[in-house]
Structures are given as structure tokens and as C-alpha cells.
Computed example of a mutant assay.
Amino acid sequence: MSSELFDALTLLEKEKGISKDIIIEAIEAALISAYKRNFNQAQNVRVDLNLATGTMRVFARKDVVQEVYDTRLEISVEEARSINPNYQVDDVIEIEVTPKDFGRIAAQTAKQVVTQRVREAERGVIYSEFIDREEDIMTGIVQRLDSKFIYVSLGKIEALLPANEQMPNERYKPHDRIKVYITKVEKTTKGPQIFVSRTHPGLLKRLFEIEVPEIYDGTVEIKSVAREAGDRSKISVHSDNTEVDPVGSCVGPKGQRVQAIVNELKGEKIDIVEWSDDPIVFVANALSPSKVLDVTVNEDDKGTTVIVPDYQLSLAIGKRGQNARLAAKLTGWKIDIKSQTEAEQLGIYPREGSTFYDDLDDEEEESFNLNLEEIE
């Protein structure tokens, strides 16, 4: 075995990121297999590769015994002592058994095994790299499409974008550059398999972390995300720093930050609301852009009743109930929306101390005062 092989292993280690020790171990295992197969030997053998000289030798390992039953695996103590007088029973002796033409046979037989082990080691490197990227975002290039998947190149490996993880308002073409969210990394017999998504709420969260420095450095925290991919999303944000406007930080100067994310998601509308540990305030914020007159909370069934002006009812509910549905997902509270007229007929509004009295404009505030006077 020439020293050029070891130079090649060093180069392979640099190019593929596979440890040379792993490859050497694979070669030794392959040579042992080749020796046993080609020379009909069942004995316990060890292959010694000399990295300095580029040579290899095969040693048969035999147990030193009092009485020999299998000459392939055992050697008598008398014969062992003829080699070295210090051998005792139960010692292991190594005898060189390298065949003359072993190099040629070994090279032919070991090639496939070594290739397989190198491939496995390379797959292991890729798996180790991508398992740490789960729930992270990467930029990939669309390679090809079929009825089940879009195949996205992430550099060393192709990821699978299933049909149900594709945004309904997007059309993908080969060579398109897209950002994807890694949902799962699996180790299979054919190597690592990576699944990605364009619809996962985590994609929206990661995009905000990229675009908004205050989120990246922890000044602003994303508390929750609700998403109907390709159409509309809501995120709630919060900052412990009272001098920082969490919503304004996410919107950015002239809306540049959120607009960059909207462009990446092909026009998906995004509502950014301020999180609160008070469910009344949080639910009211989550129903943005609708105005809210009052919120009552039922802790037993984690439900809320929200009163909105009559002209805001359809806005609060949203198209096909989307606004209310996203608000419920965002807050984790059930939301029952009622118009002001319906609430008045049910006798649940107005009530003294209604939460959002100060948020009404002049006309609505005057109406609110009249209603309170009637109650009093």
C-alpha cells in the first residue's frame, strides 16, 4: 500500500470533513474481510497499517493453550515458548501471516467496503450538521419538482418540501432561491433525510429574528405566532424595556422591516400586536385592526366575550372568520364576538368600568357616556 493512499486520505479529510481515523478503521475492517474471504481463513486476525511507510501487515491472533483443539485460533504453550519463552497459558500471540499477493486481492475486495464506509461517514457528518439546524431557517435553491415534493438544494444535501408545506399562493420553478424552515431531520438507510416547510409559523418567527435586531439581541421577544400561510398572520411581541416600542421595532422605519418579510412571503399580510399578561388587553390587541369596546373573561372555560361597535363586527370577525380565528390561536383563549347592539339587547353591555373606555374616539365616547347615563 503506497504512501500516496495516505496522502489521498488526508485530502479526503479536508474536502469531505471525514476524519482520517474513520477511513483507516474502514480500510482495516475491509482488509480483514478480504483476507478471510480470499484465503479461506476463519482465524482471528489484525491488520496493521503503517502510516509512515505506507505498508500493511496481517497478523493472526491465537490464544496460548495447554491443549490445542483448533489450530486456526489456538497455539500450544510449547510452540508459543519456542517463539518467546515468556509466553504463558491464556496469553495472546500474534503471528504475521501476510500473503505475498495480498495487496492486489485486498485492493479489489476492499474497494466496495471502503467506499461504503466512507459514504456512511459522510452521511454521518451531514446528519450531525443538520440535526443542529432543526427549527432553523436556511436559503435553498429549487432543483426539481414532482407531484409529492419540491426538492430544494441546501448545499450538501437535497431537502424535501412536501405539498402540504408549500404556500398556496406561490409557484416554484427550478433555480428559484427560497427561504425554508427545517422541520425534521431523519437518519435513514439511504442517508439523512431533511424535511422543510414554507408554511410553518416558525418560518415567520425566524424571518423576524433576521430582520429585527431588537428580536435577535433579546430586547424584544416574540411571544406567540398564529399563521394561515400565504394569506394572513399575527404575531405578539413584548419588551421588558419600557423605552422600547416592541411593535414599532418590528414594523421598522417606514415599515421597511415588516415589508421585507411580506415580500419574502409573497404578500402575506402580517398583524403585529403587543403581548400582555392581562388576557383582556391581549385579546383586544389580538383582534387588531378592529376596535374593541369591552372584553369579559371566563376563567373556567378559558373563554372571552368581546364587544365591538356594530360597524366593526365584520372587521373583527374577518373574512371567513379569519381574524377571530387567528386571534384565538395567538392568545390561546376562546373568543366570542358580539356587536354592541346585540350585547345591549342581552344586557351585558355597557357596564360600568368597561375596559376600553379611554380608547374610544370622541363620537364613540359620547355614545358610551349616554349609555352609562341610561344605566344609572
Rank of each mutant, 00 (worst) to 15 (best):
S239G: 13
E365Y: 14
T189Y: 15
E96C: 08
L315Y: 08
G103P: 07
P350T: 01
R198Y: 05
F130C: 11
Y181N: 03
A260Q: 14
G191T: 01
E352T: 15
V113S: 14
E79G: 03
L145P: 06
T331K: 03
S82W: 04
K190W: 03
V180Y: 11
I317F: 02
K184V: 02
E299P: 11
W333C: 09
A8G: 10
L154N: 04
D132M: 09
I222L: 00
A327C: 07
F149E: 00
I348V: 13
E122S: 11
N84R: 10
S239D: 06
A34D: 09
E274N: 04
R133D: 12
L11R: 14
D300Q: 11
E15S: 11
I270M: 00
N369T: 12
V308D: 05
D271T: 10
I348F: 07
L203M: 12
K329S: 09
I222H: 01
N40Y: 01
S128D: 15
T242K: 05
R81Q: 15
I93R: 02
A8K: 04
P289D: 09
E228T: 05
D245E: 12
A60H: 00
R171G: 12
E363I: 05
S290H: 06
P289A: 02
D294S: 06
N371L: 11
S367R: 08
Y127S: 08
I18H: 02
I137N: 03
I194C: 09
V97C: 15
E211Q: 06
Q345T: 10
L207Y: 03
E129K: 12
W333F: 13
E274W: 01
S153K: 08
S33D: 13
L51W: 13
K254E: 13
P174I: 04
I222W: 08
D91C: 05
S224A: 15
L160D: 10
D146S: 07
Y357I: 06
K148S: 06
V152L: 09
G17I: 05
P350S: 05
E4I: 12
R177A: 10
I32Q: 07
V97M: 14
R117A: 15
R104Y: 07
T188P: 13
E342T: 11
N169E: 14
T98G: 13
A107S: 03
Q256F: 14
G17H: 07
V244D: 11
D336V: 00
V283E: 03
R232W: 07
I27F: 04
Q345S: 02
G124I: 04
H200T: 09
A30T: 00
P289I: 00
K36R: 14
V142F: 14
T10E: 15
Q259K: 11
S147R: 09
R119F: 04
E122N: 06
K184S: 11
S354I: 05
E342S: 12
E78S: 02
V114G: 10
G103E: 09
Q312P: 10
V196K: 05
K302W: 08
P253C: 08
G218Y: 04
I24K: 06
R351E: 11
G17E: 05
E342V: 07
R81V: 12
L313N: 08
E79H: 08
A163H: 13
K187M: 13
E15N: 10
